[in-house]
Design a protein around this nucleic acid. Structure first.
Length: 894
RNA sequence: GGACGUUUAGCUCAGUUGGUUAGAGCGUUCGAUUCACAUUCGAAAGGUCGCAGGUUCGAAUCCUGCAACGUCCACCA
């Protein structure tokens, strides 16, 4: 191929599809088809947080894919046996709600009733399939190197088997229990919700203070007068003198036409300073009250039904009213009966459903729960702390994994949030009254209950409910690795893993957004610790949310959504990926703008042109040949760039291992753009015989960039014929080459050239015809300058440079670089401007010198500070002093 | 109410056990440009590191208090 035919600009959209196809067809996304080097390597496994089948992927997903693909590609090149497990999530309620909304838009009134369970589910499945196809193609467009032939689905057969198995295990251990308890009820979608699916929205509410009837001795306050029909107690603080005499009594009252019986109880939870200090306890419609009722063995009276309307248990004339109507009516009646004492407006948090946004009611219902505080006998030795047969609770398991460091939550600040969540965790309601999901594997026949996937026989009816979507997601790290078939427990309680579970579990890292720490990360820890006795992943690395350029959440209503599918054809996948990885810190939200993506597009093009330059203007050589040559005849700049490169290479490797991806990328970019392109390539136009060094660096640089920008690097690798294998599976570069002397000396040359450029620019001496140097400090510096004279001329565009033996008082300009060089720039120079410039430099230098001298003369400082710091300061002080004297000398002559 | 996070140049953000004159990109201003790249190159300007104390030889970094913004949890009925 003639390299001169390569296009001037890298056009991502022309090449990405083909490159991805070659990758895919190579089979290297499949851990069992990797090259031998990887086959023999240590496994490295990430499970893809399965995207919900609710539509298309957004920027958050794109970020997740960019980060995980970066890690997978890095470790693949490091020789690990990489397995990135792809899959999607059925997302139970979200998907069902979405399909219902679509069907309603199409004209149906109540799709579920009109279609029936089977036909409705068909519609949902059809939608889920379409969504799945979109998701897969989007993942591929992002360059994600996972093997979709190994695709898993949270609702497929294998996962169903695992779910049923888990349910049965937990049921047998007494951890899953059916109970009649207060749950969160979404009247809109007619299903229960877990605590995490309920949001709180601040609203204005009317707080009324009243007595149940005129004869009742104690006044209470409420914002929900309609629930007071269900009161079975009035609670006061045990130390509250006002009510002490009532405690223990059982009183009756007529509340808005209904006879109620309330016991006066004392409970520490009651705040004596709020309102009247007495609290009407409604066990059926408040979790707090329900807990209190349990402590005091109070009866439960349900006055609100599943339709969010009053039941017959409410007062006469109330049954059938909506809660808001009933509330107004009750308050009016209290007013009429002179029972109302006070009305005030307070800020109150209303419970609303995460999906749908409707008000959530708390109702008592018969549901299935995972009990998190109940001790149970462990089936196996667990987490190096418990032995088979020991007792523990699920909460203890969840706490211990993180506390002991067996799984790390990164960044660490999220650990505190995790512990706090665990401390407040209640039993997890797992049954849902929706159709799309894993049906609960429980059968009923009159009062008998059977747990299992198959019907035990005639006359048994299966529970129609499904499981919370997070029940199946929680098992994702091991349900995808063949569990339960791949795990067993020996008689000593040791876990015996086989097959993929043995190879890949615990997985290495779970990478996801911090917004699902509780929903998912915590539940994975729970499930894995319970079922296997080990952690699901060594690290969980939480990334921040992607926001718009003003820091707002991306949303349809704001119209500020950036869609990866629009941006990829426009700027290239590599640019999109870079913009998501760079300039962001773990766990912190990140602002993204199209401008930023454009900047990274420019960088991909820069890398393209750097490579094109090397291919076109150096004699074609093989990498092996280059490696043989580059040891001979190197110049200062060669040693400098090689030393810099190896420094960057090793630093980047360490940073990626430490998840400091943004810093790794920035270091690489600075090296590539400034050191390599702006300095070294420019030098190569003057100093010849750079071929070997360039051919040494180029392939290694492409390797370092590959996890960040897989497409452009693979493409250059291919057109430059840089290796017989694909870059995808090439070996990550390693090695040492340090020449600190060269680095230091070259930095001085850089300063000198910068001085020349600045003079040209500021003094407008154009073109620079003649420059004289005098090395006043050391002869070595002079030799270096002489040796690099051509380079200095070229880069500073000074046409004629000669040496003087010493600085002449008559020179119009003197600049002191760090090599301590007098510089005489012939030509017209603005003396006044130069004076001002030098004055200012002096003003900066003098206080610095003074304070540094003071510091260095402080014996406490020199005794305690590291030697490296002291030495560095002394060197810099020396330099500054030399510079100062040069400036002073110069000012005298001006 | 409780907790967590953020606050560094006009903007977006680095700054890893406290240590050499606080960095980068974008933007701005000035200048260059047949020579890989205008998706380019060079130079300059721009910061009392949110505020107030404290610890230390030394603080953007550690401690205390305060403020602003943001997020999560709880739900006082």
């Amino acid at each position: 191929m003639d390299y001169n035919d390569l296009p001037k600009a890298y056009e991502a959209k022309d090449v990405e599809k083909d490159i991805f196809q070659v990758w895919e067809e190579s089979g290297f996304f499949d851990p069992d088809k990797l090259p031998e080097r990887n086959q023999n390597g240590e496994p490295y496994c990430i499970v893809l947080p399965p995207p919900n089948r609710t539509g298309t992927l957004h920027m958050g997903h794109a970020k997740m894919l960019a980060v995980e693909d970066l890690l997978i590609r890095f470790y693949r090149m490091q020789g690990r046996k990489t397995y990135w497990i792809p899959g999607t999530d059925h997302a139970a309620i979200s998907t069902q709600v979405k399909v219902e909304q679509i069907l309603i838009k199409q004209g149906m009134k109540d799709p579920r009733r009109e279609l029936g369970r089977e036909k409705f589910l068909e519609e949902v499945k059809k939608f889920a399939q379409q969504s799945r196809d979109t998701i897969v193609s989007q993942c591929k467009a992002m360059g994600a190197s996972m093997d979709w032939n190994r695709e898993k689905y949270t609702l497929d057969e294998d996962r169903n088997k695992a779910v049923n198995h888990m349910f049965k295990m937990m049921y047998e251990d007494g951890l899953i229990e059916r109970g009649f308890r207060v749950v969160n009820w979404d009247p809109q979608f007619k299903t229960t919700l877990s605590d995490d699916e309920v949001l709180h929205k601040e609203t204005q509410a009317e707080l009324v203070t009243f007595k149940y009837d005129q004869d009742f001795p104690i006044a209470i306050s409420t914002t929900r007068a309609e629930t007071k029909f269900g009161d079975t107690a009035v609670a006061v603080h045990p130390d509250d003198e006002r009510y002490k005499s009532f405690v223990g009594q059982t009183l009756t009252a007529n509340y808005c036409g209904k006879q109620i019986t309330v016991k006066i109880i004392a409970d520490k939870e009651v705040d004596p300073n709020f309102g009247t200090g007495a609290l009407g306890v409604t066990p059926a419609h408040s979790m707090i009250d329900s807990d209190m009722a349990e402590r005091h063995s109070l009866p439960m009276v349900q006055v609100i039904g599943q339709d969010a309307c009053m039941t017959v248990e409410a007062g006469e004339g109330f049954a059938g009213l909506r809660t808001i109507e009933a509330r107004a009516k009750a308050i009016k009646m209290l007013e009429e009966n002179s029972c109302l004492i006070k009305k005030e407006t307070v800020a109150q948090n209303l419970m609303i459903a995460e999906r749908g946004g409707e008000t959530v009611e708390q109702l008592p219902m018969r549901q299935w729960f995972v009990r998190v505080n109940k001790p149970f006998k462990l089936r196996q030795n667990t987490l190096a702390k418990w032995k088979q047969g020991d007792e523990a609770t699920l909460k203890e398991l969840m706490r211990h994994t993180v506390q002991s460091g067996q799984t790390r939550i990164l960044p660490e600040s999220f650990q505190k949030i995790y512990f706090h969540w665990i401390d407040n965790l209640r039993d997890w309601c797992i049954s849902r009254q929706i159709w799309f999901g894993h049906q609960i594997p429980v059968w009923y026949k009159e009062n008998d209950v059977y747990v299992g996937a198959e019907s035990p026989g005639e006359g048994w009816d299966r529970d129609p409910d499904t499981l919370d979507t997070w029940f199946s997601s929680g098992m994702w790290t091991f349900s995808t690795l063949g569990w339960p078939d791949t795990a067993s427990i020996d008689e000593k309680g040791n876990l015996i893993k086989t097959g993929e579970l043995a190879a890949y579990h615990p997985t290495n890292v779970l990478e996801t957004g911090y917004d699902i720490l509780f929903f998912w990360v915590a539940r994975m820890i729970l499930m894995s610790a319970y079922a296997l006795g080990e952690v699901p992943f060594q690290d969980s690395y939480l990334h921040g949310l992607v926001r718009d350029d003003q820091g707002r959440k991306m949303s349809k209503s704001l119209g500020n959504i950036l869609d990866p599918l629009d941006l990829i054809p426009k700027y290239g996948t590599d640019a999109v990926r870079l913009s998501l990885v760079m300039g962001s810190s773990p766990g912190l939200d990140q602002k993204l703008s199209e401008e930023k993506i454009k900047d990274f597009r420019n960088f991909t093009n820069k890398l393209w042109n750097i490579s094109r330059f090397v291919l076109q203007s150096t004699s074609q050589t093989t990498v092996e040949e280059a490696d043989r040559q580059w040891a001979g005849g190197r110049t200062l700049s060669d040693n400098w760039i090689l030393s810099r490169f190896y420094h960057v290479q090793n630093k980047v490797t360490a940073l990626i291992k430490d998840y400091q991806l943004s810093q790794a990328g920035e270091l690489l970019r600075d090296f590539t753009w400034s050191d390599l392109a702006d300095w070294y390539l420019e030098i190569s136009k003057i100093e010849k015989n750079k071929d070997a060094v360039l051919w040494h660096i180029l392939p290694r640089l492409l390797k370092l960039w590959h996890p960040f920008m897989p497409f452009v690097t693979e493409y250059i690798w291919k057109v430059g014929k840089l290796g017989s294998e694909q870059l995808l599976v090439s070996e990550w570069p390693a090695g040492e080459f340090a020449d600190q002397e060269a680095e230091k000396t070259f930095e001085k040359i850089k300063i000198l050239i910068t001085d020349l450029r600045r003079l040209r620019s500021e003094q407008n001496v154009e073109p620079v015809k003649f420059v004289e140097f005098a090395v006043v400090a050391d002869e070595a510096g002079r030799q270096v300058i002489e040796a690099n004279l051509e380079v200095i001329k070229h880069l500073s565009r000074a046409e004629n440079i000669t040496f003087a033996d010493k600085i002449d008082d008559g020179w119009p300009v003197t600049v002191s670089g760090s090599m301590t060089i007098g510089l005489n720039l012939a030509g017209a120079v603005d003396v006044e401007a130069e004076k001002i410039k030098l004055q200012k430099e002096m003003e900066d230098l003098i206080p610095y010198i003074e304070s540094t001298e003071k510091k260095l003369s402080n014996s406490e400082f020199t005794a305690k500070a590291p030697e490296k710091v002291v030495q560095g300061m002394q060197d810099k002080l020396e330099e500054a002093k030399n510079k100062l004297s040069a400036i002073q000398q110069r000012l005298k002559t001006l």
